[in-house]
Design a binder for these strands. Structure first.
Lengths: 111, 111
DNA sequence: CAAATACATGATAATATGTTCATATGATGA
DNA sequence: TCATCATATGAACATATTATCATGTATTTG
C-alpha cells in the first residue's frame, strides 16, 4: 500500500531549479510575513473562514491597533483580502497557498 | 488528463487542523529563519549538495563573518547540518522539507 | 612548534520591526 | 447632523536583527 505524499517530489525539483537572486529575495520577503506570531495567528484564525477585525482581536486577545497594523502588512503582501461590510471590514485568506505553506512548516517542526 | 498537484489537499486540511498557539509561535520562528535573504540564499546554495564556508562565501559574494553568523542560526534551527573536514566545515541541508517549503513559497510568488 | 588556513564568535552600530497611545476616518442610525 | 461603532494610521518607544570589525579557536603543514 502506497503512503500518500503531501507533495510531488519531481515537481518540487522542477520548481526549485533556476531560482534567481531576485526571486530568493522575494521569497525571503514572503517568509518574513509568516515569521511573526501575530501575523501567523491571524492567518490561522482565517482558516475557518472570513472574519472582521473585532472577531480577530477577540480570538487573538490582542488590541485592535496591533491587529490592524499587522492586517495591513498581510493585505499589502496579498496574503489576505479585505472587503467592507457596513461598519466592519471583513478579512479572508487570499489564496490556498497560505494553508499549504503553513502545513509544510508544521510538518517540518513535527519531526 | 489530470493536472498533477504539488500537494494532497486532503492531507493539507488534516495537517492544519488543531494547531495550538504554541505550535503557531514555533511556526513563526521557523518561517523567520527563511525570512532573511542571506539565509535563504545559503539554503538555496546548498540545494545542489554540501559545501564549505569558503565556497558559500564565494557563491554569495559575502564576507565570511556574516555567512558564519547566519550559518550558526541555520544550524541552531536544525535546517542545516555541519561536519568538519580537515580545516573546513562542510554544511548541508538537514532535510528535504527545506526544499518543499521554498518550493511552496516560489509557487506562491509566481502568481 | 610556528605559521598559515578555515572558521567561529563577541562587541558594536545601524537599521528594522512590533506594540502602544492618541487620533483620524468611515459608516450607520437616532 | 450628531453620536457611536468599527477600523485605520501616525508617532514614539522598546526590542530585535544584521553586518562589520576585531579577535579567538581549531587544523594542517613546513
Amino acid at each position: 500500500m502506497e503512503i500518500p505524499k503531501v507533495y510531488d517530489e519531481e515537481k518540487i525539483e522542477h520548481i526549485i531549479k533556476n531560482v534567481t537572486e531576485t526571486e530568493l529575495c522575494d521569497l525571503a520577503e514572503l517568509f518574513k510575513i509568516f515569521g511573526d506570531s501575530t501575523r501567523i495567528k491571524i492567518l490561522y484564525d482565517l482558516f475557518d473562514g472570513e472574519k472582521n477585525v473585532t472577531e480577530i482581536c477577540e480570538d487573538l486577545e490582542m488590541n485592535q491597533s496591533a491587529v490592524s497594523h499587522q492586517l495591513k502588512i498581510l493585505r499589502t503582501s496579498r496574503l489576505v483580502s479585505a472587503r467592507r461590510a457596513g461598519k466592519a471590514m471583513v478579512y479572508a485568506l487570499a489564496d490556498d497557498h497560505v494553508k499549504t505553506i503553513i502545513a509544510m512548516g508544521k510538518e517540518h517542526i513535527e519531526e
